[in-house]
């Protein structure tokens, strides 16, 4: 390192070495790698515990077949409902400033930060009051309760994802569309939505995965009745109560496969130029 005559360090490249990048890269790799290894190890442990027989007997069980069917159906419906609400909500919060926007943002965070069980208890409380109570005999402890409980949590995550997706689309496109003769609605449908396809897919995947794993609110609001409101997490819970560790792990593996299938499908669809 060079020094000037008055003792100050002189900038320049002669003789100066910025030091190795290796410790930084190694540190990053170790910290990231540890987490990834634990995830893979967990799944490997599940696989190691479950033999083919217990997997087959789980898949042959009528209760589990019903549970898989209801899980797929309820997750798909709650995802559609979530997107139906999350797309306008995400666009509204991304593009418009209005009084109470911060309050709205905070309210939208409630289902994300609240313990899931509390969502279930709150839904149960809500359906004691009109107009919700008018429908409670067809909703509470019935299949609609499963979908509603999943929707309440999944939608908040989907709305956040859609907000981020719309934030990433510059407003210039809408501005040009407006000058070309669009109203706000046409600009949204013709210019923004085609660019938000990948965001919608990501939000839908997130909502589906959240719905699949939802347990607390379903237990409280829909109950855990076999062959009625039993979804896969409920099956895991019921098998655990019966002390059937292998059955519990077999169902967990089914959930892992389902989640992985959705994730991979969504990634593959995302790669097919959904976003121009």
């Amino acid at each position: 390192m060079m020094q000037s005559t008055d003792g100050n360090v002189v900038t320049g490249s002669t003789g100066f070495r910025p030091g190795s990048d290796a410790p930084f890269i190694v540190g990053l790799s170790i910290l990231s790698g540890t987490y990834v290894v634990i995830i893979v190890a967990m799944i490997a442990a599940d696989l190691a515990y479950v033999d083919a027989d217990s997997m087959l007997s789980a898949l042959r069980s009528k209760e589990i077949q019903y549970s898989i069917g209801l899980s797929l159906l309820s997750c798909s419906l709650s995802t559609l409902l979530s997107l139906w609400v999350a797309i306008p909500l995400g666009y509204l919060t991304s593009r418009f400033d209005f009084p109470g926007k911060r309050l709205l943002d905070t309210v939208l965070d409630i289902p994300i930060v609240l313990p899931p069980l509390v969502i279930g208890i709150s839904l149960l409380a809500l359906f004691n009051f009109a107009p919700f109570s008018w429908t409670s005999q067809w909703v509470v402890f019935e299949i609609p309760a499963v979908i509603l409980a999943q929707f309440m949590v999944a939608c908040a995550f989907a709305a956040r994802a859609m907000r981020i997706s719309f934030d990433q689309i510059p407003t210039r496109y809408e501005k040009v569309a407006l000058t070309l003769g669009c109203n706000r609605s046409k600009a949204f449908w013709l210019v923004v939505m085609p660019q938000a396809k990948r965001g919608i897919l990501a939000a839908g995947t997130l909502a589906w995965a959240r719905s699949l794993g939802e347990f607390g609110p379903i237990l409280v609001f829909a109950g855990s009745t076999r062959m009625r409101t039993e979804v896969l997490p409920t099956s895991v819970y019921l098998e655990m109560q019966a002390g059937n560790l292998k059955g519990m792990l077999a169902i967990s593996l089914i959930m892992i496969f389902a989640a992985a299938a959705v994730l991979v499908t969504s990634r593959l669809m995302g790669m097919k130029r959904l976003e121009p």
Binding site: P170, Y173, V176, A177, L178, T179, G181, N183, P194, Q195
Partner: peptide, 20 residues
């Protein structure tokens, strides 16, 4: 009046061509 009623053409900095 709304932008589309003004008879104005607009070209922003990078053109903002619709990507799709």
């Amino acid at each position: 009046l709304k932008p589309g009623e003004r008879d104005v053409g607009y070209v922003p900095q990078d053109g903002a061509l619709f990507p799709h």
